[in-house]
Each structure stands twice: as structure tokens, then as C-alpha cells.
Design a protein around this nucleic acid. Structure first.
Lengths: 334, 334
DNA sequence: CAAATTTGATTAATCGCTTAACCAAAACAT
DNA sequence: ATGTTTTGGTTAAGCGATTAATCAAATTTG
């Protein structure tokens, strides 16, 4: 726990001024190539690391970005956090996390707390149904194109469309979409995308888990078996979590997936590739999204915003066809 | 983006010294109750928020703790991050996240980066098979009691024991344990715990996914169906992720869970309660673990370590019996 | 060669906060 | 009334970095 050397310590051992050391380390100001090299070597061997506190105080920049998710417990969080952290690191920033403990009303508070802690900007993944007002600081929102103030998002609509096309090619004409929350813009985008792929004579219905659970209780059966017997040949869930729920419910009811009925999800969550059958899903390009969000915030911090930056960007999604989808069975309805 | 008022700004509007304002805000030093109240009110109405940079520079404390996970993509990460963030917030600290991008060799680098960014201490959840050397700064390790330098962990062994007992009560005598990585101390603890619950004449075998995938490739079938036909009546996975894999593989092969075979997992991951059947699992008390880890690091920061703090604490796990376990079938072997 | 310019480094101020040292006035004790 | 303590505040130093202003020496120019 020995205190680390300061700029001044390094300067003294070389008999130069602190300013010169600062210049050498940060490659600013005027300094001869020779001295710069000498100083850098000495600094390195002394184990000198610039104090972020000192720098922050002087420059007014902390070098941190806040990452706020309404609910950290969301299964997509690892993907998001990792991508954001990596992108931020590439830009020389650190990531401070904030959690609103599942309570939407605290979302704003969580953001404020990060700002108070000195975050130079904030990246927000708002909870469905909520939107973020201006916070007077650089920020980027990752949600849906429909969300006011959104900065960047995956092209959820096209992702849905890809799923729809995939199912059409497999011969499915009677499909049930499984949604979670009606007030989620992301889910609506995905659902609309799916629908847009089908011709108008296709049979498409949408069921909402929040509705079903209102009656059956959390984690209740969704009643998918009955729907299959009524002709549904494929279930499109707006999230791999719901897709997993559907898959296991169908399997347990004795159906063969994908032999008798197909299932698809979204987001390529951690388990999608190890369950049996592996799940057909659509993946976001999180590294790309993160890079856009982070660089956008940083440009705001540096007052380098261009008109282009204010656009609501969308990043393509990628369909990953796996084992949970197959040709529509022709036996039942024809 | 208007600059926020400083201590001095507040002091000037009241005609007092900055030191007095500081004392009023932080309740230190000597100050009359009246003036303290006045100052606090004025500070509040001016929207004064202490500059973390100024404070950090002066006190040498940033107010941040680093959280390093070898792999942020781990499905347990949300639980951990949320618990740590909440605990840290309760203690007035913020959380800075670090990721080693899946590469164990970078684990140390990720830690160093957080320290360089000014983290006062670090909380580490090391990757299986790795251990953390002394970093010369306050730190806490959350892994297994077996891991050198471990600070706090769930009582994985007892968790395993609870699973074992649960299965014994249900009449299971022929069990297969599914492990992931052999070099994981946590998994070994759990496995040993499970074994310890069974009498010596019980048939217990252990299969390792890393071995099986070496031949079959990532995400391959585990060959559980054959094992069931050979008499195994229950599968104990060391993680819900593996349990899910086992469950779907068995269901797909046409087995009824828990009618013909039981399955258990660990960690109560996000999906455990929504799949069908819901998963019997064992849950860690992450809030408790996080609180212990965070407070331990903070005591190190404040040089308040007691001998008690150096102990390797373990926090009880809780068995959550759900639908995936049932009485052992008596038809096959008897 | 004197004047102008460039180069390379130093000085000193400053960011916002904390805290030890100090001091005047009030309260108490002898 | 004089000495002592307590109370309530102020002063001033300093944490470590950045940067505008400055200056001496070296170099170029007329």
C-alpha cells in the first residue's frame, strides 16, 4: 500500500519541472524528443501512473461513463455491459454502473447518482415503457427507434422480418407471437417486423405473457399445446427467455420441436446454443451498438456533435437459424 | 451543462468561509446547529453537490470500488453485479466494472486498470482455475473456500449436500453429477457436498461437459438418455445452465421430468422459474455475500481490519424445490 | 552583427475540497 | 477581576495534474 509516485516525484528525480513531465507523458506542449524519452523511461521504471483525481479536478473530466440499466438482473445485461465496457475502454473511458433496483421511478435517481459521482456522460438502457428526459449532461439511449430521444438501437423491425421470412420459407402460415410487455417499444418493433413478412392471408395471433400471468400467476403454463392442436405451427417469442419457456412447455406436453412445431427467439442469450434443440434466434450486434453509443456520448462531452450524431441509428440484426425451426408439418391442417 | 456551484460559491453567498461550509455539509469540525442548518439549506437550493474529484484529490479516496469478473458474459453476472452495486451504494461507494474479455491472462490487467483509474479497492470473482495474487491494494475475493485468498463464498458444499438429501428423500440411489470444468473449486465443493449426502452403497458417477465436448463439439448431446436406461434416476448439474441443457435433452428424448427422471441445478438463474417444469435448484444469498465482500474491502481501505475479517466466511445456500424433482421411479431397477 | 524567430523548458495559477492550526469571543472557574 | 476552557468560526496549506504566460538560449534571418 505504498503511495504511488506523483508527477512531482518523477520530476524531482530528474531535476526537471513537473510541467515538463506532464508534457512528456501526455505528448502535449513543447518538449525535445530526447528529454521526452528519458522522462517516459524514468516514469515507467518508477511505476508512475497519472492520478485520475488530480487530472479530473484540473480538467473537469473524470474519464468515467455511467451505464444505467433499469434492471441489472435482465439476462441481456451481460452482453450489454461487456460490449459497453469494451467500447469505453477502447476510448480510454471507464464504466460506472448504476441500478434502479427494478424500480422505474428510481431510474432518474440512479442516473443522477452517477452524474454526482462525476460521470462525464451516461448511457441508458431504459426499462420498457419508460423514457428518459433530458438530464442536461451528455447521454445516449439504447432502446428502440420509436423511443423519443433514442440514440442507437438494433434494427428490431428488420430482425423480426428476418424471422418471419425464415418461417415462411419453411412453410409456416399459422403463427403465434409471444410478447412479454405491451409497453415495450422494442417488442412492438420486433412483432411488427414479424408480421410484415407474412402475407395478409396468413394466420397470426399475438399473446402477451403479462396478460396470461395476470390470471395464471407468474411462471404459469401458457396454454401452447391447445394452440398447436388448433393449427399453430410456429411460435415466435420476442425474447429467448420466452422462447425457452415455450420450448420447454411444448416439449413437456410431448411435442417434437421442430418436427411438429417450431420455436424462435431473440437476442441469442447464453443458453440458446446449448439447449436441445438449439434455439433459432436473432442476434444484435452489441459491440457495434455499444461503440456507436459510447463514441456518441464522448463526442457530446467534447462538444463535437455533428448533425449526423443526432440521428437515430439502427444496426442490423443477424438471424441465427438453429435446430428449433423446421418445415411446417403438413399433417394437421391443409 | 452549466457548471455546478462549488463549496466556495456557496460560502460566498452566505459570507462564510469555505471550511465552514465543508464542515456543515459533512458534519465534521465545530459548527453551531443554527449555521449548519442555514448552510445546508442554501447549499440544497443552490443545487450544490460535492465535487468527487476535489474530494478524491484531497482525501486520496475516490469512493469507487472495482468489480472484476473474468467473464462478464457469465449468466450469474447480473445477480452478482446487482448485489455488489446495491451493497456498495449502501456504503456510499460506486462500482466500476472491469472485464478481462474472457481471457484469464488479462484478469490481472483488468484489475490493474481499475486501480489505475483510482478504485479504492477491488472485488474479484475469479475465473475457475485461476487465483488472484496480492495486488497491494484492498481487495476481496468471492469464489470458494478452497481458493487461496478467498474472502467470502456461498457454502457450496452444504448446498450440494442439501441437493443430495433432497434426492435421497425422494428415493434416488443412482445419480449422475454433471460438472462443467474440472478446475473449478466451486464446482468441486458442490460435487463433494452432493456426494457426502449419499450412503456409500449409492451409485454416483460424475461426467464433465468439458470432456464430452472435447469429442462431440460445443453444445453436443451429453448422452443422458443412455444413462437413464442404465438406471440413473436423477441428474445433478453444478449450474442451472447445465441443468437446463440436461432437462431439454431428456425432454427431447421423450423422458418425462420428473416422472421418469429428476434434474437439479444450482444458482437459481433467471429462467429456472419460468421453464417447464420449473427447476429445482440451490440459491446463493448474493446480497449477503456482496455485503460481506464490500464491507470487508471498505474496512481494509479504512485500515480497520480485524482478525475476524481475515476469516474465510461462508454464507448458507437455500434449496428451492420445484417441479423438476420427484420420487425416483421404481419400475426400471429394483 | 543585430534583430527576429523558434525551441525547450520553467513558473505560477488553478481546479474543489479537507483539515490542522490558529484565534477571538463567550462561558466558566478561582 | 483574572485565568482557564469551551465554543464557533477563519486561515492557509496542500492533494496532483494541466496550461497559459514567461523567459533564456539557440537558431534563423536581414
Amino acid at each position: 500500500m505504498k503511495p504511488r509516485p506523483s508527477l512531482n516525484d518523477v520530476a524531482k528525480t530528474l531535476g526537471v519541472s513537473a510541467a515538463t513531465v506532464s508534457n512528456a507523458v501526455s505528448s502535449k506542449g513543447r518538449i525535445s524528443a530526447d528529454l521526452k524519452k528519458t522522462i517516459r523511461e524514468r516514469a515507467a521504471e518508477m511505476g508512475y501512473v497519472p492520478s485520475s483525481a488530480g487530472r479530473a479536478l484540473r480538467t473537469g473530466r473524470s474519464g468515467f461513463l455511467g451505464l444505467v440499466l433499469a434492471d441489472i438482473a435482465h439476462p441481456l445485461f451481460p452482453q450489454i455491459a461487456q460490449a459497453i465496457e469494451n467500447a469505453a475502454t477502447d476510448f480510454g473511458y471507464g464504466i460506472l454502473i448504476g441500478d434502479s433496483r427494478g424500480d422505474v421511478s428510481i431510474q432518474k435517481k440512479a442516473i443522477d447518482r452517477l452524474i454526482e459521482r462525476g460521470a462525464d456522460g451516461v448511457i441508458i438502457v431504459p426499462r420498457h415503457g419508460s423514457q428518459v428526459g433530458d438530464i442536461g449532461r451528455p447521454m445516449a439511449v439504447i432502446d428502440s427507434e420509436m423511443t423519443p430521444g433514442n440514440t442507437v438501437s438494433a434494427d428490431h423491425r428488420d430482425g423480426g422480418k428476418q424471422v418471419g421470412k425464415h418461417l415462411i420459407e419453411l412453410g409456416h402460415r399459422n403463427v403465434a407471437i409471444i410478447g412479454g410487455f405491451k409497453d415495450s417499444n422494442v417488442q412492438h418493433d420486433r412483432i411488427n417486423g414479424v408480421k410484415s413478412a407474412f402475407p395478409s392471408d396468413a394466420e397470426i395471433q399475438t399473446l402477451w405473457i403479462e396478460d396470461i400471468e395476470l390470471e395464471g400467476g407468474t411462471g404459469c403454463e401458457l396454454g401452447l399445446a391447445r394452440m398447436v392442436s388448433e393449427g399453430v405451427t410456429a411460435f415466435v417469442a420476442v425474447s429467448d427467455l420466452h422462447a425457452l419457456r415455450a420450448l420447454t412447455e411444448l416439449q413437456r406436453a410431448g411435442f417434437d420441436v421442430p418436427g411438429q412445431v417450431s420455436v424462435t427467439g431473440f437476442d441469442d442469450l447464453i443458453w440458446s446454443n446449448v439447449i436441445s434443440p438449439t434455439m433459432t434466434t436473432v442476434r444484435m450486434d452489441m459491440p457495434k451498438i455499444a461503440e456507436i453509443a459510447v463514441s456518441n456520448v464522448i463526442r457530446q462531452i467534447n462538444d463535437e456533435m455533428t448533425d449526423e450524431d443526432r440521428q437515430n441509428l439502427s444496426v442490423p440484426m443477424t438471424l441465427i437459424a438453429r435446430q428449433s425451426t423446421g418445415p411446417a408439418p403438413t399433417t394437421l391442417k391443409n
